Deep mutational scan, measured.
Amino acid sequence: ESETFDVELTKNVQGLGITIAGYIGDKKLEPSGIFVKSITKSSAVEHDGRIQIGDQIIAVDGTNLQGFTNQQAVEVLRHTGQTVLLTLMRRG
């Protein structure tokens, strides 16, 4: 069981404050995608409180990250504006 949710964030001096990890899993058993690996102290993400380590980032400002490499996803996140809309999925 999984839930998908949107989080809109405004960057602070730390930026968004997440590091991400790309993961290619076994299609049947484990998900592939871009996941939140860590959250920086005092960052926008930590202050917001809704995003957790292990959440999958589905889209950034409407750009679907399906099939993106870790590096491609980093580039998408790097080129966002001051306000960012993240679409995430959390597995229950």
Rank of each mutant, 00 (worst) to 15 (best):
R78T: 09
G92K: 12
G33V: 04
I34D: 00
R78L: 05
T40K: 15
T4L: 11
T63D: 06
A44I: 13
D48V: 04
R78E: 11
H79V: 08
R50M: 05
I39V: 08
L65K: 01
G49S: 06
G62K: 11
F68P: 05
L9T: 01
G22M: 10
G92I: 12
V76Y: 10
G92V: 14
S38R: 12
T63H: 12
Q52I: 06
V45Q: 11
N64C: 12
F35Y: 15
N70I: 15
Q66R: 10
K28N: 13
Q72H: 08
G22W: 12
E3R: 10
K41N: 10
K27W: 06
S42Y: 12
K11S: 07
V36R: 01
Q72A: 11
L88T: 02
L86H: 02
G54M: 05
G15R: 08
Q52E: 12
V36I: 12
V7S: 00
L88Q: 04
N64L: 10
D6M: 09
D48K: 08
H47G: 10
V7G: 03
D55I: 02
N70S: 14
S32T: 15
A73S: 07
V36S: 03
S2P: 07
V60Y: 01
T69E: 05
G22L: 07
Q82G: 11
G15S: 08
E3F: 15
L85Y: 08
V36M: 04
Q71T: 12
L29N: 15
V7D: 00
K27I: 08
T69L: 00
G17L: 00
A59Y: 02
T40D: 11
K37F: 03
T80F: 01
T10C: 11
G62M: 00
T4N: 04
I53R: 07
Q82E: 13
V84F: 06
N12C: 09
D6H: 12
I24C: 14
A44W: 07
V13H: 15
R50F: 03
I51H: 00
G67P: 05
D26T: 11
G62C: 05
I58Q: 04
I18K: 02
V13A: 15
V84G: 03
G67K: 08
F35D: 03
D6T: 15
I57L: 10
V7A: 06
D55Q: 02
V74H: 13
L16R: 04
G22K: 10
H79S: 15
S38T: 10
K41M: 06
V74F: 10
I20T: 12
S38Q: 11
V76M: 15
I39S: 02
E46P: 05
E30R: 06
I34G: 00
T4E: 07
I20Q: 01
V60M: 04
V84W: 00
G67H: 11
S38H: 11
G25D: 13
Q56G: 02
T63L: 12
D6A: 11
L16S: 06
E3L: 14
T80P: 04
G54W: 03
E75G: 07
E3G: 11
S2Y: 14
A44D: 10
I57M: 00
S2F: 15
L77W: 05
N64M: 11
T87K: 14
L86W: 00
L77V: 06
T4K: 10
T87F: 00
D61H: 03
L16G: 04
I39P: 01
N12I: 03
T69D: 09
F35N: 02
L85M: 13
I53D: 04
Q71D: 11
V60F: 03
K11T: 07
R50V: 06
E1K: 13
A59R: 08
L77Y: 04
G49T: 07
S43Y: 05
S42H: 15
V84I: 06
K28D: 15
T83G: 03
V76F: 12
Q14E: 10
T19H: 08
I24W: 12
D26Q: 13
T63C: 13
L65F: 08
E75H: 09
I39E: 01
I18P: 03
S38K: 11
V7W: 03
V76W: 05
D55V: 02
V74M: 12
S32Y: 10
S43Q: 06
R50P: 03
D26E: 12
T19Q: 14
V76E: 05
L85T: 13
D26Y: 10
T4W: 06
G81E: 07
V13T: 15
I57T: 01
R91L: 07
K11Q: 09
N12P: 12
S42P: 08
V76P: 00
G54Y: 01
E75I: 01
I34T: 05
L85C: 14
I18N: 00
A44E: 10
T83F: 05
L77S: 01
H79D: 15
D61M: 00
I34W: 08
I20F: 09
